[in-house]
């Protein structure tokens, strides 16, 4: 856990250091053009963040700021501390990711069970077909298609999480309803491929369990098919299903970031993309770092959850 987080922070820092030059170079060039001499300001910034110093010095300065003062550095482009900019957006990113996870569960679980129990039925084929389509359409493409369909056929304004008139307004019931009207689309878009994958996993897991001797035992006890299905094979097939949270959370966060760019959501996606494009290193680095760390923590939580529900894992 701690080594992983350490590794994440180093990787992140290496990545944001990769581009030649830094933002201050371009800033200096800009200032030079407009004839302003701000060498002193630039120098103090350089000193504060150790720019131009060896890699490890910069890294330690950055990490010390984060760990001791909660200071993630300065967004050069916006000239504001990174912490001012990111928390709202991170909240939305993870909020949407977690809601997507719920959406995936609520759809994949019943459909997967149905597909396994009614193997080779029409419903199973339909689910399989949509599963493959869901896997084959990249997130952003699905987002574009849905935006197009929503605009063309329903005349719905797309993009953003609330309608323009609610932007910056305090939270009211009407605004909340408006939010619900918007937020389902990114959730469905981000969740489709995950749901498709989980349906296949659930189906395969359950097919593995459905013909086990303990199912026959339960049947011989006189349980109804529905009772025994939910109490035994589904319960067992659920465990590998839970462990999939571990890998699905990172992909959801990834997907959310891309979809947010397309749909112009007020989440980390557009901010990160912009920061990367203009080499706003501390902003980009902090975003990558926090998103990665929260994902790692989420994965850990799913491991703990798995141990809670599966006595066999607890036992080991």
């Amino acid at each position: 856990m701690v080594p992983t987080l350490l590794l994440v922070s180093i990787t992140t820092f290496v990545i944001i250091q990769l581009p030649p030059g830094d933002y201050l170079d371009s800033l200096a060039a800009e200032m030079g053009e407009s004839g302003v001499d701000n060498t002193a300001v630039l120098e103090s910034l350089r000193r504060q963040y150790g720019l131009g110093e060896p890699f490890y010095v910069q890294y330690f300065k950055w990490m010390r700021g984060i760990l001791l003062e909660g200071d993630f550095g300065l967004s050069f482009e916006k000239n504001r501390p990174v912490t001012d900019l990111i928390w709202d957006r991170l909240g939305w990113t993870f909020g949407i990711s977690i809601m997507t996870l719920l959406f995936i569960w609520l759809t994949a679980l019943p459909i997967g069970i149905y597909s396994a129990v009614r193997k080779y039925s029409v419903g199973d084929y339909v689910a399989t077909f949509f599963g493959f389509i869901g896997l084959a359409i990249p997130n952003f493409l699905l987002a574009l298609v849905m935006m197009y369909v929503a605009f063309k056929f329903f005349g719905q304004s797309v993009g953003g999480l609330v309608s323009p008139e609610y932007l910056g307004e305090p939270w009211t019931w009407a605004k909340f309803v408006d939010l619900l009207k918007h937020i389902w689309m990114p959730i469905v878009v981000v969740g489709t491929s995950g749901a498709a994958a989980l349906i296949r996993i659930m189906r395969a897991n359950l097919l593995d369990e459905l013909y086990r001797p303990y199912v026959v035992t339960a049947r011989a006890k006189g349980m109804t098919e529905f009772q025994l299905l939910l109490r035994y094979p589904v319960r067992v097939a659920l465990n590998p299903f839970i462990s999939t949270i571990g890998w699905i959370l990172p992909t959801l966060v990834s997907g959310e970031i891309i979809v947010a760019v397309v749909m112009n959501l007020p989440t980390t996606g557009p901010l990160l993309l912009r920061a990367l494009l203009v080499q706003d290193m501390f902003l980009a680095g902090s975003l990558i770092l926090i998103v990665s760390m929260l994902t790692v923590v989420g994965t850990l939580i799913s491991d703990v959850l798995l141990a809670l529900v599966d006595p066999r894992i607890r036992y080991q």
Binding site: Y214, V216, T217
Partner: peptide, 24 residues
């Protein structure tokens, strides 16, 4: 049929390892 299963006629199996629900 369900009444008879378990109540009138009960059955035990060859594989005690796999015939009991594994995580209950």
């Amino acid at each position: 049929l369900r009444q008879i299963r378990g109540q009138d006629i009960a059955m035990i199996f060859q594989e005690p390892m796999t015939s009991l629900g594994p995580i209950q």
